[in-house]
Design a protein around this nucleic acid. Sequence first.
DNA 1: ATGAAAGCGCTAACAA
DNA 2: TTGTTAGCGCTTTCAT
Lengths: 362, 362
Amino acid sequence: LDENEEDMPSRHQPTSADVARKAGVSRATVSVVLNGTQGNMRVSAATRQKVLAVAAELGYSPHPVAQALRRRQSRVIGFVPRSFHKLPFVLPIPYLLSIYVAQAATALRYHVVEVDDASRSGDELVRFLRSRRVGGVIFDAPDTPEAVRRVIAGQPSWLGEGLVPIVQLMRPQFAAETPTITVDARRGIDAAIDHLVDLGHRRIAFIGESGAHPVDRARRDYFLAALVRHGLECPPDYFQLGRAYSLEVGYSCTQVLLGLPERPTALFTASDTYALGALRALYEADVRVPDRMSVVSYDDAFAGHLYPPLTSVTQPLKEVATSAVSLLIDSIESVERAKTIAQVVLPTHLTVRGSTAAVRLS
Amino acid sequence: LDENEEDMPSRHQPTSADVARKAGVSRATVSVVLNGTQGNMRVSAATRQKVLAVAAELGYSPHPVAQALRRRQSRVIGFVPRSFHKLPFVLPIPYLLSIYVAQAATALRYHVVEVDDASRSGDELVRFLRSRRVGGVIFDAPDTPEAVRRVIAGQPSWLGEGLVPIVQLMRPQFAAETPTITVDARRGIDAAIDHLVDLGHRRIAFIGESGAHPVDRARRDYFLAALVRHGLECPPDYFQLGRAYSLEVGYSCTQVLLGLPERPTALFTASDTYALGALRALYEADVRVPDRMSVVSYDDAFAGHLYPPLTSVTQPLKEVATSAVSLLIDSIESVERAKTIAQVVLPTHLTVRGSTAAVRLS
DNA sequence: ATGAAAGCGCTAACAA
DNA sequence: TTGTTAGCGCTTTCAT
């Protein structure tokens, strides 16, 4: 009621000094107890108990900002999302990744600062990252190797010494020579084709992207290779390529396929987005899925929420994010730089839903 | 090449001391120049130029952690997402909000720490927020008033004095008596019904939620009120209520409507999720949209990406997030607490797409 | 096993 | 107009 007492810890969050005073020890001891320095037998069991008890009683928790200043590391990592923020829910993968990255970082008591659209390119990016003192950077599918290299070059480092670690996700620029976390399409695509063939399909068409990036190549190549394994082949008419992962490409390629003298009975699309476009074209043409056409997509980003729910090749996005974060934080915290550049590859698998069925004999 | 020079700024990020030395002034002056203290005429134009030049040359930017420690405020806000993280893309609103909140905060040079699922409830939440020294908290649609109250009670504050400001979004617990940012369904719903009536519809059905929360009530009440304005009414059969915003409810309610002796010609659903379920039911029953049934949804979260793209009542999610962040930060930074509890209400509007058409005369 | 002292990089009072 | 001083809360040698 009366505010002017002398040593009132008062309304402030308690500090280590408060704990020390009340426990009758020094602040140094409090720090040692709470941080359990490796040979933690430094402090006697008795004082240890005492300090812990007082800390709990006071609801003490160390001030993260002061810790960061003293330890000279801020437990902050930067996340640079792909330049994709335009197509909100047609492809939620970028959002999912950013959420999973944040979750994984939080679990390790790190913060994520996400670079916003404006400052994603050029020196602006380096300035931003530097001013925030990030301890490492995760790039999701950077547009160019330069974007990544600039961050590397913006160093000798803005923190202590050495370089700030960098990890690239999903669709890396290998020329930048950083560790990468990617996904291997093969297993999922193999399973998809096995599944279709098991259902009796022989005329299987493909809608994909024509790009030269390994990620795009993989989807095409593994599709073709899987057909070959079954002694099948893909006539050129059945192999439709577009120049972007857009709904429109999926739509128009499907129309082409439906106009063919001998229609395919199954369709594999290299992304959920294509599948969405395909579904529209099929709907308009009154070709029922899966009765008249089986559809398998790649991504499994929203495939399960369409009608019918799509059989799809599932990418382990959460694992990608988690490995990226732990790889990054490991190299932030390890004293010496690793000599080899880690290249983590995570497998895909097939998730069977309602868009595939046995081929109709009629 | 030789590392042991004396005053080598070296590989470290420059500090204000580096700038001060090189500019021949004191660190205090550097600080004043860079922070432009209100009566910024304190420092002469000459030294001002000098300092700015040196700072630019050295690529100096103040260490945010040191600033935070000294200024006793960390520029961090907490975001508590709704307990909804289960249904990833059936309803992306929670994700959008978290992204928009982060963007708005970044623009104001704040960080957001998002509370993760595990520690969303109970004392765990208070501990988390307190340990991170957040300067304020945004709740998205908290489950109970207690969740919010606990955070208020976990105070007399973990920062300086006074309470940590709190803002609730979208579906607040009014009993907790914090500022709120909500959306007014009326304008959008009025426009939706006007639109349908203009198209000749008279038999308009509703699928909604039966909850007692003002947000749920509003959607029901404004729908009915809008019909009344046009001299129409909604027979009980046309007024379908479920107990959750789930796809299944949308699906089964639509089946009920289709089984009615006199089918409605238009359908208003109180969420995108219902609309998705409705679309499935209509598809299966071969009722073409919009030829045989016009559909309007509420939310406009992913309505534009369905087939056909749905006419929908659009919620200004980005504005909600932006107002929340600026309201919160204003009250963090203002010295005295506002006496009145701000209740910001943002309007909705109708976005017309391809799921509505003139009623068929057949 | 413990405490004293120093200082991370910055800013705000107070002097000059 | 500018510089000096004194910390913010913490951790880490280095003494004891």
